[in-house]
Amino acid sequence: NITNLCPFDEVFNATRFASVYAWNRKRISNCVADYSVLYNLAPFFTFKCYGVSPTKLNDLCFTNVYADSFVIRGDEVRQIAPGQTGNIADYNYKLPDDFTGCVIAWNSNKLDSKVSGNYNYLYRLFRKSNLKPFERDISTEIYQAGNKPCNGVAGFNCYFPLRSYSFRPTYGVGHQPYRVVVLSFELLHAPATVCGPKKST
């Protein structure tokens, strides 16, 4: 009989979030998941669920729940959905087409922007091929755009693959930082360890 609440607040209220290319994953298990708490945590810009209804979450049980978190800019949030393409979905964080879970995003301009520009958040701009779903690539190998090998040196047709967002508070919403948490629900042929409040007794 599990009584402890799932530590969603640790994920959502973390002081620092990860850069999207090096997104963070927390496995959540053996706890009571009260998803209604999430609705009250922040004024969400996005709370979209796929393959599951957000209002039914509190009635369900899962084997595992994974919470992935990272920062992107406002106009990239739409890429965090099944079947999307674009720089983020292709080279940084890719959801599977049959994704079961929820994408939660909110504006973090007050936390993640600086007047002089916050350069701490990076994204991958160049990659030889698209990522597979939930693949994480943290390599910093020089990207070869031409025929000549780069031998690890940046220059003509040889690019450092990561680029930094420079978040400034005066930017338009599309270029402001957004914190994203992706909850993916895993149903294996194994005992369910993460249940809503109704199912945990």
Rank of each mutant, 00 (worst) to 15 (best):
A18T: 09
S129A: 12
I80L: 07
V173C: 08
N13G: 10
S200I: 15
L111H: 11
Y93P: 00
T170I: 01
N64E: 14
L122Q: 14
F62W: 15
C158P: 01
N92R: 02
P96I: 03
V52P: 09
T3H: 11
F156N: 06
P161Q: 04
N24I: 07
V52Y: 10
T100L: 15
D75Q: 10
A33C: 09
N120Y: 12
R124V: 00
F8S: 04
V71N: 01
S113K: 01
Y171F: 05
Y93T: 00
I2H: 13
R25W: 01
L162F: 06
Y39M: 14
G174L: 06
S113H: 01
Y171E: 00
D34M: 07
Y50V: 04
V103I: 09
C102E: 01
A105E: 01
I2F: 14
G196V: 11
N58H: 13
F47I: 14
P7T: 12
F185G: 09
D68M: 05
Y165P: 01
G51M: 06
E186T: 11
R136E: 03
S129K: 14
F70G: 01
T193A: 12
I80P: 01
P82V: 05
Y21F: 12
Y91T: 04
S129N: 14
Q144G: 07
W106L: 05
N1C: 07
Y165H: 01
R73I: 00
D137A: 03
S29N: 12
L38Q: 05
R25L: 02
H175V: 01
D112H: 02
D97I: 13
Q176M: 04
G196T: 11
S29M: 09
Y165M: 02
N30K: 08
L60W: 08
E76R: 03
N40Y: 10
E10T: 10
T3Y: 10
F17V: 06
N64M: 12
N58M: 10
C6E: 05
F44K: 15
Y39F: 15
P96K: 06
S129F: 09
D90R: 13
G101R: 02
L162Q: 03
N64C: 12
D9L: 12
G101A: 03
S53N: 15
Y121G: 00
T193E: 13
G155S: 06
L188T: 15
C158I: 01
G101W: 02
K199Q: 13
A42V: 13
E186K: 12
Y39W: 15
Q79N: 06
T85D: 08
S184D: 07
T46A: 12
W23M: 02
K110R: 12
K198W: 12
G74M: 03
N1P: 13
L111P: 06
G83K: 13
D90W: 08
V77K: 05
Y91I: 06
C49N: 02
P43D: 12
S139M: 07
L187T: 15
W23K: 01
G196E: 11
V181D: 00
D75C: 06
D68N: 03
L187A: 13
R27V: 14
R16H: 15
V173Y: 11
K148M: 12
G101Y: 03
V65N: 03
V182Y: 01
Y21H: 07
D90S: 11
P43I: 08
S29L: 08
Q84P: 03
Y171D: 00
Q79C: 04
A190S: 14
D97R: 12
Y66T: 13
F156S: 06
S129C: 09
I88H: 01
T55C: 07
T100Q: 12
I2M: 13
L162S: 02
L183K: 00
A192V: 13
G86M: 02
S36P: 07
V153L: 14
F8C: 04
G117R: 03
S139E: 09
D9S: 13
G174T: 07
L183F: 09
K114M: 11
N120T: 06
A190E: 15
E141C: 08
F167A: 00
S113Q: 01
I80D: 00
I80Q: 01
F185H: 06
S36E: 11
E135H: 08
L57N: 08
F44E: 15
I88Y: 01
L60M: 13
E135G: 09
P197D: 12
R163Y: 15
K94M: 04
Y35C: 07
P96Q: 04
I104T: 08
N87Q: 11
D98V: 08
V65Y: 08
R78W: 07
E186Y: 08
A154L: 08
V11M: 08
I80H: 01
Y121K: 07
N13E: 10
C31Q: 06
T63V: 10
T170G: 07
G152L: 07
K132G: 11
V32A: 08
R136D: 02
V115H: 10
L162T: 05
S113M: 01
V182A: 05
F47T: 12
Y123P: 00
T85R: 15
L122A: 13
P96S: 08
N109P: 01
C6A: 06
L111R: 12
N107F: 01
I104E: 00
F134V: 05
R136S: 06
L162W: 02
L187C: 11
N120D: 13
C31N: 06
Y159Q: 00
I72E: 00
G174S: 08
L162G: 00
N120R: 11
G83F: 11
V52L: 13
A42F: 13
R168E: 00
P191D: 14
I28N: 04
L125V: 08
N30T: 09
L187Y: 12
R163M: 15
T193F: 11
A81V: 06
E76S: 04
T170L: 04
L131A: 03
D98G: 09
A18F: 07
L5W: 12
G146T: 03
S164C: 06
F62N: 07
G117E: 03
R136T: 05
F134Q: 09
P133S: 07
P177A: 07
Y21L: 04
V194F: 10
G117T: 03
F12H: 04
K199A: 15
W106N: 01
Y119M: 09
T55Q: 15
C61E: 08
K198L: 14
G101F: 02
G174C: 03
Y50H: 07
I2D: 13
F134N: 10
A14F: 06
N147K: 06
P82H: 02
V71W: 01
A154I: 10
L5H: 12
T140V: 10
D112P: 01
A42Y: 13
E186N: 14
S200Q: 14
S29Q: 13
N157C: 01
N107P: 06
V32M: 11
I88S: 03
T100K: 13
P82W: 03
L60F: 10
L162V: 12
N64V: 15
K148Y: 12
C102F: 04
T3P: 11
V103L: 04
E135A: 08
Y39G: 13
I72C: 07
E186A: 08
D34E: 08
P169N: 04
V71G: 01
F156H: 09
S19T: 04
N120L: 09
I2R: 14
A190Y: 12
K132V: 10
F167V: 00
F185W: 10
D75L: 08
C150N: 01
D90F: 09
A145R: 06
N4L: 09
K148F: 11
T193Q: 13
V181H: 03
A190Q: 12
P169D: 02
Q144C: 04
Y121D: 00
F12P: 04
F134A: 09
S200D: 14
R136P: 03
L162N: 03
N107K: 05
G155H: 06
S116P: 10
F70M: 05
K94P: 01
N4T: 14
I138C: 11
S108W: 02
T3K: 13
T140G: 09
R127Q: 03
G146W: 05
T100C: 13
G196Y: 10
F62V: 12
I2C: 07
P43E: 11
P96N: 08
A67R: 05
V103G: 01
G101K: 02
D9I: 11
N130D: 10
D98A: 10
Y159D: 00
G172L: 00
G51Q: 10
T85M: 09
L57M: 09
A42R: 15
H175D: 02
L60V: 11
I142A: 04
K114G: 06
V65E: 02
S36D: 10
E10I: 08
Y39K: 15
P191L: 08
P43F: 08
Y91G: 05
R16K: 15
I142K: 03
P161R: 04
W23L: 02
I28A: 08
E76A: 04
S19A: 06
S36T: 14
F156L: 07
T140A: 12
F70Y: 04
